[in-house]
Amino acid sequence: MDTLLEPEQQEELRGVATVYRGGLPQTCRVPGVMWFYAVMLTGRFEELIELIDETVRGCREFGYDWELAFVLQLRAKIQNDRPGGLPQAARDVDEALEIFLRIGDAWGVAEALAGRGESRENHGEYGPAADDYRAAMRYAADLGAHGQLPLLKVRLGGVLIEAGEEETGQGLLREVLEEGQHSNRDAVPFARIQLATWLATAGRTAESREHLRKVREEFAERSTPQLFLGVVEGSLAALDADEGRYDGVLEAVRGAVARMDDRLTRAIAPDALLSQLLVAARVLAVTGGPAGAADGARLIGSFDALRAPRPHAPRITWHSRTAAEEAVRAVLGEADYASAHAEGAALTLDEALSLI
């Protein structure tokens, strides 16, 4: 994916994005609908929702049922990560599922069920999300799409852990790891990251670190987007902080941010960057005295404000948020904490990142 951000590729993508527009018959149907990705990868994020809304309207006007369901799923994926976008995402995946069921597209049904599971997971509705992932697995198995099953199993394992069914959930993740080379090539590192996340919240930091190191080794052997490398580096930095080893952690956080911070990450994975604010806050509080703790409180305030439109978060986020606040409050009094937190809430993401 990183190669698509290089100047030559960007010029070609801008040409594609300029030639087409939303709502045309050719941009409502495959392959023309893939124009949407050219718009996204050239950084026109402020236009993205409007353009895909036009495509949805075009599909309705032209009577393109299958295409409408396909585009609704695309819009849901975008809305899942936008402030205030989850209700629209839920409506879109429900409608897409209804269309695919009506026209008898089993593969579309499987995709829509997985999409609805993701939307419900983002709402914190773990039980219904698990039901959707199980149903998607059944459809995929019936279709013989066995390569998709490991990824769906990882998603199911993750939501079961979040729902409190840790043993069942982590068991599914370990099954994917045991299947190893017979599994989808993306499923194994995804399973390791999910398992490492759970282990971190359970205080089993050594095991968590071992899984993350293996992911880093796997990523080093292939072309991997910087976003994923940054996530792994940031997670390892958080483990250092969990273990009370702060030397070099702030530098590691800066390195993780440098890998991740681009237009695409801010659009499709904003939490990847926001999570680093919390790790940095904890380090600053422990190593930087009152001034560092004040900056830590500002980072927490910025995190809270920037993430406020998406109030639900997985347990690893609240684990990190709680640890950061405890570290800061151990240095600052209530009034000083409240004042610095309020200052942080007014910061932009760029301003918050400059404190790290």
Rank of each mutant, 00 (worst) to 15 (best):
T317L: 13
G234D: 09
T201M: 07
L332C: 01
D350K: 13
E111F: 06
I103N: 05
N80R: 15
L299N: 04
R245D: 12
E218M: 13
L72N: 07
S339A: 14
L160W: 09
I268T: 11
H312V: 02
P309E: 04
V253M: 02
R138D: 13
G158M: 12
V154F: 14
E334V: 03
D350F: 05
N122S: 07
E165L: 09
A202I: 06
P270S: 06
F219E: 01
A297F: 06
L151M: 12
A200M: 13
P150R: 08
A342Q: 14
E217M: 10
S119F: 10
L143K: 06
V33D: 05
V331D: 02
H182V: 07
G127H: 03
S183C: 00
G248T: 09
F36W: 14
G288V: 08
L306Y: 03
P128M: 11
T55G: 04
H211W: 07
G84C: 05
A76M: 10
E218W: 15
L250S: 10
V16Q: 15
G230L: 05
D247W: 14
E178P: 06
A323R: 14
G43W: 12
R82K: 08
L151T: 08
A106R: 15
G22K: 04
Y133L: 09
R138V: 14
D2N: 09
L173D: 04
T322M: 12
R263H: 05
A281C: 00
D240M: 12
V257R: 11
H182Q: 14
A323I: 03
W107T: 12
A140S: 14
R60F: 02
A220W: 00
R282D: 01
G230Y: 02
Q170I: 08
A308Q: 11
E46I: 01
G296T: 02
I356A: 01
L227H: 09
L13F: 15
G158P: 03
T197C: 00
E326M: 08
G301Y: 15
G22T: 00
R329L: 03
E221D: 08
V176I: 03
H341E: 06
A191G: 06
D132T: 04
S183I: 03
E118H: 13
A342S: 12
D247T: 10
D105M: 05
T348E: 06
G115R: 13
G22W: 02
L24A: 11
E47Q: 14
G144P: 02
I52P: 01
V154D: 05
A269G: 02
S119T: 15
R75V: 01
G344C: 03
A238E: 11
G115C: 12
L13W: 15
A281W: 09
T168W: 01
I268M: 11
E326N: 11
L236Q: 09
E165G: 07
A96M: 09
V253K: 05
L101E: 15
L156D: 04
A141N: 07
V33P: 00
F219C: 00
V286Y: 01
R266V: 03
A327D: 02
A96F: 13
L86H: 06
A76Q: 07
P270D: 05
Q73Y: 01
